[in-house]
Structures are given as structure tokens and as C-alpha cells.
Amino acid sequence: MDFKKYYPLIPMFIISVILLAVRLAAPELSQIVSLALFYVALGEAFNIFTGLTLYVCFGYVAFVALGMYGSGLALKYILATSNPPLVTTILFSFAVAGFFAFILALVVGSIGLRLRGAFFAIATVGLSEGLKNFIEGTGIWGGSSGLIIAGDLISSYGHETYVFVSTELADYLMFAVYVLSLLVMFLITKSRFGYGLTALKEDEDVANVMGVNTVRYKLMTFVISAALAGMIGATKMLKDLVIYPPQAFAISYTVEAIVITMLGGLGTVTGPVIGGLVYSILKYMLTVSFPGLQLLILAPVLIAVCVLFPYGIVGWVKRRFRGTLIDYLLV
């Protein structure tokens, strides 16, 4: 067995351990660490689809939002009908969240991914807005007054567990989803599936004449990416304990995911980790010093990245140190 190809996992492992250690050792930093974990996970999940295929889904936030709804509804349902241990409840809500996002991606992808490139991006613009208006308009799942699960958690598990879930457990679950996305991305890039995607990304027709089923490959990355986004939503639900359509479907999440992957390095495994860290720290510092203006950093950062580092931070470092150990370990 060839272990060498797994060496790039070492730096990722180190970064992840540092993140976890900071969260454990410095509770006063927990706010910024949970923000960072959310963005790193979101960036990586987004990267699995966009980084590997160069297709952009402008309605990506819909998967996160549907994950939030899925987990919220699952929690409400399971706590109303029985009183299972916390682990069962959480696992169930994650499964439902991932499944909701998976189904949406399957439906949207199997129609939309027959379109090429920019046409797919255009076709998905309406996805998140449409879903939001649907929920608000029909009044399902709490409609515009939102879905609140705090009460259900308190009445089933007591106040102490409720506080633990939203302040501690949610962060560790986000860490778990982040590690999962990172591993999935890494394993895909090292697999035969990943080589097929490399061809697809360069030229779909050529990939096709090599025997790659391009529609299915695109769809597979799309549903994997969406299911992970759904689980990120589930974690966010446990953290916030409430969901309102306008916040859940905020287009800024999609834009932030694009910025993070571009900043770190589109299609690289470690890119979204670096991008997510840099972005969340920047955003946090700006929120503290210029409250209300933090989203303004999006535009200049995105423009600067596109002009100065079209391959992102990781891409730039890899080019700078081509052929060295750094190039080899940073994937």
C-alpha cells in the first residue's frame, strides 16, 4: 500500500489540532473559533462541488438553510413523539438535514447539470430565493415567523443540557463536519473519480470521449457537497436554536463561500481551510471595530484575490515553491 499519497494529511491534521486546541484551551475565544469553524466547513463543502468541477451554484445557501430546517423539524418531531438519548436525537437530526439537502441537490442537479458552465449558475440563482419565498408564502415549517427549537430542547433535556448543546456541542459538531468535508475532498482528489473530474474541469467534451459520464460525475460532487452543507446547517441550527427564512437564506453565505474558496485556492484541499481562517478572523476583527460594516470587506477581498492571487493563497504558495516539500505537502 502506498502511504506516501496520504502525507499531505499531516499539515491538515496539524491545523485541525490547533483549531481544536484553541477551542478547548481558550473558552474566551470560543466565539471567533466557532465562526472560523463554520466558514472553514462551508468553504470546504462548497469547494467539493465548485473547486472540482468549476461549476458555481448561486443558490448554495439553500442547502445550508434546508439542513437547518431538516434538523429543526427532525428535532421537533423526535422530541414530540419520544424522549430518546441526546446522541440519538442529534444523529437523527443530522441524518435528516443531510438527506433534505441531498434530495434538493439531486432534483436541481439532475435537471440543471445538463446545462453547461455559466448556464447552470444562472439557472440556480433563483433556487434559494424561490425556496425562501415558498416557505414564507405557504407558511409551512413555521413560515415567516420561523422555527424555534429552544423550548423543545429545554423541556426534554433540561436547561443545563440545552446550554451545553448550543455553546459547546455545536462547536465540536462543526469541527466534526469540517473534518469530514476535508477528508471527503482529499479522498476524492486522490481517487479515480477525482482524475475523471480533473479531465471534466479542463474540458467536458474531452472527458466525455475518454469515457467519463460527465453528467453523473457533476451530479455526484453536487449531492455530496450539498449533503455536507446540510450538515453544516444542522450544526448551525443547534447553535442558533432558531431559524428565520431571511437569515437562513441570506445570499451573503453563498458569496462568502465563493470568497473563501477563491481566497484559499479553488480546487485545493487546504485552500478553504486557510481561506476560511483568514476570512473569519478578518470579519471578526471588523465586526468588533466597525460594527455593521463587516460585509463590506467581501467585495474588496474578492476583487483583490481575483486580480492578485487568481490561484488563491495555497495556489500561490504552491507555485512559489514548486517542486519542494511544501508543494508536495500542501494539496
Partner: peptide, 21 residues
């Protein structure tokens, strides 16, 4: 039959403009 299956049967194309990686 979809393109990728045609390739397996033994038809393949060298597209215009080369498009190597």
C-alpha cells in the same frame, strides 16, 4: 447511447483545437 458509452464500444473523437491538458 450516451457519449461515454460510445467510447467504450470503440468510437472516439479528437476534438477540434486539440484540447490537451
Amino acid at each position: 447511447i450516451p457519449s461515454h458509452e460510445r467510447v467504450k464500444l470503440g468510437i472516439t473523437l479528437v476534438p477540434e483545437g486539440r484540447s490537451i491538458f
